[in-house]
């Protein structure tokens, strides 16, 4: 990547830190790496207000449920499916008050699924603390057929909708939770650059 050059729509993530000024806290983490991120968070000085943790475990990965049980003081909810975790989030929000701080650790898909849900409650993604863990895999929006292909690990990804070979750009839509994919060989059909794994 060129130095000093940045696509401003591309999100920036950073390690979770408690916000001491708050009304309540909601932590959502995904998989082994997310579970570990939550454990790290609980190594920090705990805030005064109530804390809820929603943990989506990962089949086959390390499970931090037992460890989290020891450190989460109030409310720990563990789920083994993404849908169940998102349902728990939905259930938490209607009664939530201003000053709820939201923390997320997981893949981009996990984060932006959450961002879309909380947006309905008037929370902007900018006000969610986000830590990228586990994988750099991208969701790719096909600009031609509008399908979103998840789990893209390569610079060029076949669209799950129309099959076109998409060049995965850095341009990111928060509304869709996906990077833009543009047909790579539109000008010169069949001329596909070398496919490399760059989002492990």
């Amino acid at each position: 990547m060129e130095r000093g050059y940045w696509i401003r729509s591309k999100p920036v993530y950073s390690a979770l830190v408690w916000q001491q000024q708050a009304n309540a806290h909601l932590v959502l983490v995904e998989g082994s790496a997310g579970g570990l991120a939550a454990m790290k968070l609980f190594q920090q000085m705990l805030p005064q207000q109530s804390i809820t943790v929603i943990y989506e475990t990962e089949a086959g990965g390390a499970d931090y449920t037992a460890a989290l049980k020891k450190v989460v003081p109030d409310d720990l909810q563990v789920f083994n499916s993404h849908d169940a975790a998102m349902k728990a989030l939905e259930a938490h929000l209607p009664e939530a008050l201003m000053g709820l701080r939201i923390y997320v650790a997981g893949s981009e898909k996990f984060m932006w699924d959450i961002a879309q849900i909380v947006l309905h409650y008037g929370v902007d993604d900018a006000d969610i603390a986000k830590e990228l863990t586990g994988t750099l895999a991208r969701s790719v929006y096909c600009v031609h057929c509008k399908a979103i292909t998840h789990n893209a690990h390569t610079n060029i990804q076949a669209c799950s909708g129309c099959g076109k070979k998409l060049f995965v750009r850095d341009h990111f839509s928060r509304r869709l939770g996906a990077y833009m994919g543009l047909m790579v060989d539109a000008e010169d059909p069949g001329q596909i650059p070398e496919i490399e794994e760059i989002y492990p």
Binding site: L97, M98, G99, V118, Y121, G122, V123
Partner: peptide, 9 residues
């Protein structure tokens, strides 16, 4: 007043 406002206020 401010501590009992719904999310999105």
């Amino acid at each position: 007043l401010l501590s009992k406002q719904p999310l999105g206020t």
